[in-house]
């Protein structure tokens, strides 16, 4: 079992290394010259060279890659071209806010999915099940940023219940949370509903019914426990999606998280910052999925044996 875990960890590290390399190469291939963006439009070649020396983009590519790679273990992702600050501290400021938004949305989406999904599986095509299907269809079809804008339009502009934009304490979290939760709800709901339907159809459930065990107990203790496994997988996937998916929502609500930072960085072609954001996000995604895999092994004895 330990060998298996180590193998998984090693595989994931390898994957991260591939991502780091891919990001570096893609950024260098596609991004223009950051010196030209920073410098005044008609700056002379000398001025441009000064900027290049300052940014470290005057050295050959392999040299740049070496500097970049040797910095990562120390948490040194270079200095932002735009903010003139270490990239690491910029991310450190913004990341917690994005994580809070992602976790709140996830909690909301999963609780809604649990309530509606379990009820839907107990009574397929009942009114709660239909409500769930309608919510899913809407969440899947509407662009997240537009849902956010509609929430602002109705609740901030028309009704004046919430601050429209910016970050003014926990209340500013509510609308973005709803918008993002609606985007992940469809997958969560479908997975829980299917898993519950499946486990409610098992023989041991029929046996439990025959023994006269109350319906409520059968649903929540027997069936739900077995439906929890797919749920964990989905949460892993969701979290990865959320870290990228909140970007546009953050822009809509002017929420000062990692997504805003990413947009600013992209527009300023601040590629140390873009690179670092991409890598940090990917690392979190990989890490969460590794945890999910390991959790699976703890929870499901069958996987432990075959692994």
């Amino acid at each position: 079992m330990l060998g298996f875990i180590l193998k998984r960890v090693f595989q994931n590290l390898l994957m991260l290394a591939a991502i780091v390399l891919a990001v570096f190469v893609l950024m260098r291939l596609t991004a223009g010259d950051p010196a030209r963006i920073k410098a005044p439009i008609f700056a002379s070649e000398d001025v441009l060279n000064q900027y290049r020396a300052q940014f470290g983009t005057d050295t050959p590519l392999p040299q740049q890659l070496k500097t970049f790679l040797s910095g990562i273990p120390r948490g040194d992702f270079g200095t932002s071209f735009r903010y003139q600050e270490p990239v690491f501290s910029l991310i450190q400021q913004r990341l917690p806010r994005t994580v809070i938004l992602a976790v709140c949305s996830l909690v909301l989406a999963v609780s809604l999915a649990l309530v509606i999904g379990v009820a839907g599986a107990r009574k397929p095509y009942g009114w709660l099940d239909r409500l769930g299907l309608a919510l899913s269809a809407f969440g899947q079809s509407a662009p997240t940023f537009w849902v956010g804008l509609m929430l602002v339009l109705v609740f901030s502009v028309q009704l004046g219940w919430f601050p429209a934009v910016g970050f003014e304490g926990p209340i500013s979290l509510l609308l973005p949370t709803i918008a993002v939760a609606l985007a992940v709800l469809p997958t969560d709901l479908r997975v829980i509903r299917t898993a519950m339907l499946e486990s409610l159809g098992q023989d041991y459930i029929r046996t439990a019914k025959a023994f006269g065990i109350p319906d409520r107990k059968i649903t929540y203790q027997y069936a739900l426990r077995n439906a929890a496994l797919p749920l964990i997988t989905v949460v892993g996937i969701d979290l990865g999606y959320l870290l990228g998916g909140t970007i546009v929502t953050e822009v809509v609500f002017n929420y000062p998280g990692l997504g805003q930072l990413a947009i600013d960085a992209v527009n300023a072609r601040d590629y140390p910052l873009v690179q670092a954001i991409t890598i940090v996000t990917a690392a979190i995604f990989v890490f969460v999925n590794l945890v999910v895999d390991l959790l699976y092994m703890v929870l499901d004895p069958r996987i432990r044996i075959s692994g």
């Binding site: 994957m15 991502i19 891919a22 990001v23 893609l26 950024m27 596609t30 991004a31 223009g32 990865g240 870290l243 990228g244 998916g245 970007i247 546009v248 990413a262 947009i263 992209v266 527009n267 072609r269 590629y271 873009v274 954001i277 991409t278 996000t281 990917a282 995604f285 990989v286 999925n289």
Partner: peptide, 15 residues
Amino acid sequence: LAFPYVVLAMAIVTA
């Protein structure tokens, strides 16, 4: 799948 594709796509489009 592990890649934050949106960020990358944005970077490429801008560049």
